[in-house]
Nucleic acid binder design. Structure first.
Lengths: 222, 222
DNA sequence: GAGGCTAGTGACAGCCACTGACAATTGACA
DNA sequence: TGTCAATTGTCAGTGGCTGTCACTAGCCTC
């Protein structure tokens, strides 16, 4: 066993079986996203997706928990990358700053990782679709909530506090995530879906936090 | 027509038909919540709900868009009351303060309105169920997002700014809502589900905003 | 390198949420 | 009381999703 591992080289990694599975899975994701974005989520049946890849409907459900699950295959990648980006921030940074930098700097990595599975343009259209499809939007927000919880724990660990006793980790993550969601929504609504555009929106919204919390919006500084 | 209205008195308001409809609807909500909370959301079929009220399944779907819709019948009431509470805040209050007071003061009204349809204890158990049922949690968060948008528009109007040009309305509402969601989660998790408990949690989380945004959590003031 | 093992798959049957169409019923109102 | 319209039940059908069972094809052992 150990002999084979060291001898055959790096490409022996996954066996034939494993590679075939990966190919089927990727094909299903691509077919699903393509059909979703061109015919709409609700009007795409699982049968159609399965047929496009020439597998049985049953097989589709062996790869994905449901239609919805397939729709977020790419988002899962992005989330994992974001978590990694947060984990990689230097410990001296303030929590909010660490989150901010994680998004800003992590974006390029995320973009690349995603593009290796589906073309960027397809993913962009998925963003629009998610925003405009109630079912998908709901799922998206629940997923985000889960990521939030994970990030809160990360921040708590980083700062050496107990996430269940100290309110600050969850609070700062909740505030940050709320703003990111606004930025995301605006980003998806506009036509410029570049990484640069997301950078700018992120900064803009984060910078709007102070003014929004100000006592009164109507009084000018005397 | 006008004669009948003035003569028969206040109880003539809704006709027999209308009252019967209301009774059916309320019965469906109660049956649904009861079954949901005792057997679980996923394990409750629409047929069971309909049967409990002795109507056909088709009728259930004429009252509710879906199973999910029935689960949030009570939440709808609460949301409407909250919006009204915000609308009723004096215009001189700062936006964040207006939101805070709307929740704190609106809570009693909400509680009463809800209790007129289903017993409070049942509603409490629904809270737990929503938090622990992925499908319901997703729906809940999407609904909250819709309410947020409505409140943001309200705040913008109140402050006389354009909700699409000025970031502050949506930002302040997003921040506030994020905290309310944390409070709500904690409230549902604890055993004290009184209005007073919610008051305290709301205040606690809102007061944690400043400290959470502080530059560093580790350095003490010198 | 033959045969057993097991993961992956397809085919089929069935549950349940949800919808459309049409007929029967019942409150409203002249 | 008879007509109209709203409400409801019945029936049939679609589509997401799951359980089951038999079969095929990589993989492993002897």
């Amino acid at each position: 066993m150990s002999a084979a591992e060291t001898e055959v080289g790096p490409d022996s990694g996954p066996g034939l079986r494993e590679r075939k599975k990966q190919r089927t899975r990727d094909a299903l994701v691509r077919a699903a996203l393509t059909l979703f974005t061109s015919n709409g989520y609700e009007h795409t049946t699982v049968d159609e997706i399965a047929e496009a890849v020439e597998v049985s409907q049953r097989t589709f459900f062996r790869y994905f928990a449901g239609k919805e699950d397939a729709a977020f295959a790419v988002h899962r990648i992005a989330e994992a990358h974001f978590i990694q980006a947060v984990r990689g921030r230097p410990p001296h940074e303030a929590p909010l700053e660490a989150l901010r930098q994680a998004v800003l700097e992590g974006w390029h990595t995320i973009h690349e990782a995603v593009e290796s599975v589906v073309p960027a343009e397809l993913q962009m259209r998925m963003y629009h679709l998610i925003e405009s499809t109630p079912t998908l939007l709901a799922a998206h927000m629940r997923r985000s909530a889960e990521t939030e919880e994970a990030v809160a724990r990360l921040i708590a660990e980083r700062e050496g506090v107990d996430v269940d006793r100290d309110l600050r980790p969850r609070v700062v993550v909740a505030l940050f995530s709320g703003l990111m969601r606004l930025a995301e929504r605006r980003w998806g609504a506009g036509s410029d879906m570049s990484v640069a555009a997301m950078h700018e929106l992120t900064s803009t919204y984060l910078d709007a936090m102070g003014p929004a919390l100000a006592g009164s919006w109507r009084t000018e500084r005397p």
